[in-house]
Design a protein around this nucleic acid. Sequence first.
DNA 1: CTCTGTGAAACACTTCACAGCG
DNA 2: CGCTGTGAAGTGTTTCACAGAG
Lengths: 213, 213
Amino acid sequence: MWGAMREIPRATVGRLARYLQGLEELGRRTVSSADIASAVGVSAAQVRRDLSYLGPQGIRGVGYETSHLLTALRRELGLVDRVGVAIVGAGNLGQALAGYGGFEHRGFVVSGIYDIDQEKVGTSIHGHQVRHLGRLSADAVDRLFAIAIIATPADAAPEVLQRLAAGGVRSVLNFSPTVLKAPASMEVRNVDLSTELQILSFYRGRPPNGLLP
Amino acid sequence: MWGAMREIPRATVGRLARYLQGLEELGRRTVSSADIASAVGVSAAQVRRDLSYLGPQGIRGVGYETSHLLTALRRELGLVDRVGVAIVGAGNLGQALAGYGGFEHRGFVVSGIYDIDQEKVGTSIHGHQVRHLGRLSADAVDRLFAIAIIATPADAAPEVLQRLAAGGVRSVLNFSPTVLKAPASMEVRNVDLSTELQILSFYRGRPPNGLLP
DNA sequence: CTCTGTGAAACACTTCACAGCG
DNA sequence: CGCTGTGAAGTGTTTCACAGAG
């Protein structure tokens, strides 16, 4: 129908996820690009350009119908069906993530928490079963989850990535304080606290500002 | 001395922080751009270009002297003196962050944890004092910290940002599940779990890959 | 008249490729 | 000779500005 559509730029994908969130918070029946823009802190032209990658969604002279746009965004982001998420590491951070309520509401389901500590295996954290790390690959193969969050100490992370790769997992969010280099088959997002703080440290006392890339 | 051509690109700053980390893990006396590149998963040309913004630091035919490069990176990132960091919110995530050991080692000091719950105020979490949220602005003015990490529920976050702005804080890392729009005086990095998962979700089942921006 | 959708221009960032230093 | 530092080329992203739909 709207054929030969271009590939969505990486930079745009990151913002689409935020528009989704902004839209939910706005909670209006229709919104203009300017509304969305000011809700998430980017330019209105940017919003229009980004949304144009989804094909024509708006009504000229009016704006976008919120519910329709939400559907289009969710479809594009692959959130039509529930997506299983594994948390690897049942330490401080893993437990905090397991207790984070926002998952279910946004189309994600925690399928389980994995740890190497036999004391923890078999227990339940915030209602989620703790399984042994040894089952990680097999569970991935069985498609219990499609995305994994690594919340282990730095030295355990490379091995975990290994196991995930072996299980055919393609999407990994790495919170461990080490830089994981993604194998070609995987998309790995490294979210390291020190790195983030160092970036902020750089911008202290400089001409500031702009939404993160 | 080495004049006008400064201004480091935003994209570069993000990588500099990772080179710092990669260098520490490498632990060699000298490293080539190719070594750093393969440690963090970018191209060697990229590394050389990025490092060139710090002025000439390498030795042609040899590479970079690790300790010298570490110093140059830390200076550029504003990590010569210790930087105070406040954690706002003593819930699951706040406690996990407080327990994260990596701070001290990387030039950051947790100056305190702030919460509104009187039960928690006065206690100590992982060796860090919990103070009342009401003191946040005043402590910011007193320069007890330069950077704040928001780890509160979504609805409390805007008010916290308010207080931080009032205290003259310029750098904020927002882990709460809401998009905070940065006032012009502030650099706010929104690190939202749902957003990250949504981005990963998009890349499931597509031509993958590349280190995050 | 308002607000979208989009060419075209501007800008930002990355890669290439090589001169030249140690 | 090996590896840095950097112009120049290439690619990706954002902004401008406006035609045209509703």
